[in-house]
């Protein structure tokens, strides 16, 4: 029981770290067509995330891999029932990944425009679809006892799903804008800070509506009613979001970015805690729910994997933080070339 509970929250933590890290580069990519007026702007935006995006994306692979290892049936049913949205995310990520490398290879406007578009699509689509997918998971997915999915992609676009997509998109845009505010200077910097404030203004009502809608569309609050102490997590997500505005006004962008990171992590945990112990709820009948207790791997595999994760995830966080430190501060002129 304890092992499975630990794994349930580790599973949530890995998704949260993925959203926090890749989230800001998805945000930068989404803002790319809006803010990238000149070639220098674009170069600055790409180079601000250049050393990080690839390492950030591995959190997705790890979150997926850990789902596979610790909860094989969840992995199987989740990935096969979300077949189309996951493949759309995959294609988007593929185009984005090569775009960063290919774009600078040929000095030609048309060529660059193709890859500019891929950077945008490759950031916008995953940001939106991860939100849609997770909101639908909170709500429940129509699959039966055999793990067979009875729905289609349009059913994922229900109002609550769309709201979740919008929430993720805006969160990542704000997170990306905070990052850019920290990394850039001059005209681009002025425009990005102004935009961050506007995104914040839209995000706050969307977040409030999402919290309210969750009471109607999901059973997430059941756990909070049972254990009111967990309301603290919701409080953290609300307060950290409000603080972003405060730090933006004071031009303390690193702190603003840390606050939006905290918002993303606590928002993810809002859902994870609400789901517990269900990982993948069925909309058809609660007896089909896939839970941490019924559908985990064997105690041996869970123990081995716990050892691996406890040793290596801190190591990974250590060298990734070293990378962030190595490339900290505003982009210098020299870093603009690559």
């Amino acid at each position: 029981m304890i092992l499975q509970t630990i794994w349930f929250f580790l599973w949530g933590l890995l998704w949260a770290i993925f959203f926090m890290t890749d989230g800001f580069d998805f945000g930068v990519g989404t803002l790319y067509p809006v803010l990238g007026k000149s070639e220098e702007d674009k170069r600055a935006m790409i180079n601000s995330i250049g050393p990080f995006w690839d390492g950030n994306e591995v959190w997705l692979i790890t979150a997926g891999g850990v789902t596979f290892a610790a909860f094989p049936k969840v992995y199987a049913v989740m990935f096969s029932s979300l077949y189309t949205p996951l493949l759309l995310i995959l294609f988007a990520l593929i185009l984005r990944g090569v775009a960063f490398e290919f774009r600078g290879q040929i000095e030609n406007q048309g060529w660059k425009r193709i890859w500019d578009l891929c950077i945008f699509i490759g950031s916008f689509v995953p940001a939106l679809l991860f939100g849609v997918a997770f909101a639908n998971i909170f709500r429940g997915i129509p699959f039966d006892g055999q793990g067979i999915y009875h729905g289609n992609i349009l059913m994922l676009l229900n109002p609550y799903g769309v709201l979740g997509g919008l929430l993720f998109l805006l969160l990542f845009m704000l997170h990306g804008a905070n990052w850019l505010a920290m990394k850039t200077e001059g005209d681009l910097h002025e425009r990005v800070t102004a935009l961050a404030q506007k995104i914040w203004l839209v995000l706050v009502p969307v977040a409030v509506i999402f919290l309210v809608a969750s009471a109607f569309a999901t059973r997430l609050y059941d756990n909070y009613i049972k254990n009111p102490a967990f309301v603290l997590v919701i409080a953290i997500s609300v307060i950290s979001l409000l603080i972003v505005k405060f730090f933006l006004a004071r031009r303390e962008y690193f702190k603003a970015w840390c606050s939006s990171a905290l918002t993303i992590v606590s928002c993810t945990f809002f859902g994870i805690i609400g789901l517990f112990p269900v990982l993948f709820p069925s909309l058809i009948d609660s007896k089909y729910h896939l839970t941490a207790f019924n559908d985990s791997s064997s105690p041996m595999t869970l123990t081995i994997m716990l050892g691996v994760v406890v040793i290596f995830i801190p190591v990974v966080i250590g060298y990734q933080m070293w990378t962030y430190k190595l490339f900290q501060g505003r982009l210098s002129k020299e870093e603009m070339e690559y």
Binding site: T62, G65, A69, I304, V308, Y319
Partner: peptide, 21 residues
């Protein structure tokens, strides 16, 4: 998944992270 999934998860956490970072 109990056997195979763990190998993929270990691959990501001990090797792929290092390479990509």
């Amino acid at each position: 998944g109990d056997v195979f999934g763990s190998l993929l998860a270990i691959e990501a956490s001990v090797a792929f992270f290092l390479e990509s970072t």
